[in-house]
Design a protein around this nucleic acid. Sequence first.
DNA 1: CAAGTGACTAGTG
DNA 2: CCACTAGCCACTT
Length: 109
Amino acid sequence: MKTSEDYFERVWEVVARIPLGRVTTYGAISEHLGLKSGARMVGWALNKTIDMDHKNIPAHRVVNRLGELSGAIHFGHNVMRERLLQEGVIFKNDYCVDLERHFWDPSSI
DNA sequence: CAAGTGACTAGTG
DNA sequence: CCACTAGCCACTT
C-alpha cells in the first residue's frame, strides 16, 4: 500500500490539472510520471478515487488510447458520458470521444 | 508463495 | 481500426 500511495497521489495531481473539456489517456499519464508501462496502475489509482469519494478528481476525463470510456464500467455508463458531454466533448459514438480534438498532454503544463 | 485479474499499451500482420 | 501477443505491476484469492 505504501509503495503505490505516492504514485496514486501523483496520478490525482495530474488528473486534477486536466482542463475542462479536455481528455487524456492512461498511457500519457503513466509516461509523464516516468512509468514505462504503468497504465494499468493509473486505472487502479482512479478506482481508489471512487472508493475514497475524491469527486474533485475528474476521472471522467481519462480515457483509453482509443478514446473509449473504459472507465464507464466503474463510473456508471451514463454518468461519465453525460459529464463529458456537459463539458462540450465531442463523441465519435456513445462509447468513444474524439481524441484527436480533445487530447491533452500532461507534459504541456 | 503461485496463479489469476484488471478503468492498459505497443508491436506485428 | 481489428485480431493477436507479450509486457506490465498492484492487488486478490
